[in-house]
Design a protein around this nucleic acid. Structure first.
Lengths: 218, 218
DNA sequence: GACTGTGAACATATTCACAGCG
DNA sequence: CGCTGTGAATATGTTCACAGTC
């Protein structure tokens, strides 16, 4: 059963979602040569309350020193390790249209712990071209590519019509985490992690609040 | 005080975040000529539980008929109205690099209720070029552009170094909702709505779960 | 004295299960 | 009878406030 490691408390999802922000703040401090920080300072940089930051970090274990604070380098390593950022994780990007193109460059440029392992597209006019320093490969070989690179993460930026089918093939090839930019509900098995980013959805949420503000005034 | 409209219950944020998904599902049904639906069917399309869907819709008022279901067109109108999707809302996009370019095309193509009112960039090589059918305008005129278009929403896709400064100028010009793709914590006044989409953060969250899976096995 | 780590209070969100209504 | 709308139960998340430790 799952009674293997009774010592580790589970890190709640809401905390996991904030760890990347903390990691970035720690990277900044480290880059400035700051050796030690406090929950107040870090929280300020991360845009959260100091109590929340301390609570979040406490799920990773006790890495601070009471009355003193946190060692920047040590904490940086702990958070990075918790996020599985050891070495560069291979990511496959599927769908090299306008958006896929931009995302590929983004991942290549941002020196964060990911490596664009391959770019894949179904359009024969795109296959064979070089984007962000990689040659775009044929969608027909998707499974092959995923396995060749040992990729467990994929970014999906295809047209909506083919997204579910591509998604299924990614899962079949062994991908366990998918980040989709396609505005469509996708089905994945329970053991696969799906996160969705949707521009239209985000704008509509903003529109809701904009309207609330309008109503509150005259 | 805020005791003006005692009849309307507040729609919780978690519900607001799902309304766009429901709206898209309703649009699909309407496009297929389906006139009536049920919480079960809609929930299936939206990828949520039927109880959650009913609870969410109940915050907008009672728009279903017991024993029968929901009228697709009526519900569509209600949800759209709640989101403030009346007519096309003007959106200004700032930072027309690779990503801004892709986002501009996305908003223009996706027939969802937004209109790209203007594109703005600081790079003289980009200003004056045509992207997604619009001529890119000079960042120096940002405030002017926002007011000319009456835009209350903006998308931010600038380099990280200038993001806070651009953000401040957007707010000063009257923008009340900002969607940022810049990997940096931004400060805005309490009456401005800020939503952040960050590729690196999303990938790191996926990496966390990928690692958990690895640990659970041998 | 300063700052962490956390129990306890509070707030928000989800799910269940069924009463109410057409 | 079927399906909505919702009270009650549960689960998750945030904040407060302070005991514990250096």
């Amino acid at each position: 059963m799952t009674a293997g490691s009774p010592l580790r408390r589970a890190v709640p999802p809401s905390t996991v979602a904030r760890l990347p922000v903390y990691l970035r703040a720690l990277d900044e401090l480290a880059a400035q040569g700051v050796a030690r920080t406090s929950s107040g300072e870090l929280a300020e940089l991360a845009g959260v309350g100091s109590a929340q930051l301390r609570r979040d970090l406490s799920f990773l274990g006790s890495h601070g020193v009471r009355g003193v604070g946190y060692d920047v380098e040590h904490l940086q390593a702990q958070v990075a390790a918790e996020l599985g950022m050891t070495g560069d994780l291979p990511v496959v990007i599927v769908g090299i249209g306008n958006l896929g193109h931009a995302l590929a460059n983004y991942v290549v440029d941002a020196g964060t712990g990911f490596r664009v392992a391959a770019l894949v597209d179904a359009d024969p006019r795109v296959v064979g071209t070089t984007v962000a320093g990689l040659v775009v490969e044929d969608d027909a070989r998707l499974g092959e590519v995923v396995q060749r690179e040992g990729a467990t993460l994929a970014v999906l930026a295809t047209p909506a019509a083919v997204a579910q089918e591509v998604c299924d093939r990614l899962v079949a090839a062994g991908v366990t985490g998918i980040l989709t930019f396609v505005p469509r509900v996708l089905q994945v098995p329970a053991d696969v992690d799906l996160r969705s980013v949707d521009l239209a959805t985000e704008l509509q949420i903003l529109a809701f609040h904009a309207r609330q503000r309008t109503l509150e005034r005259g």
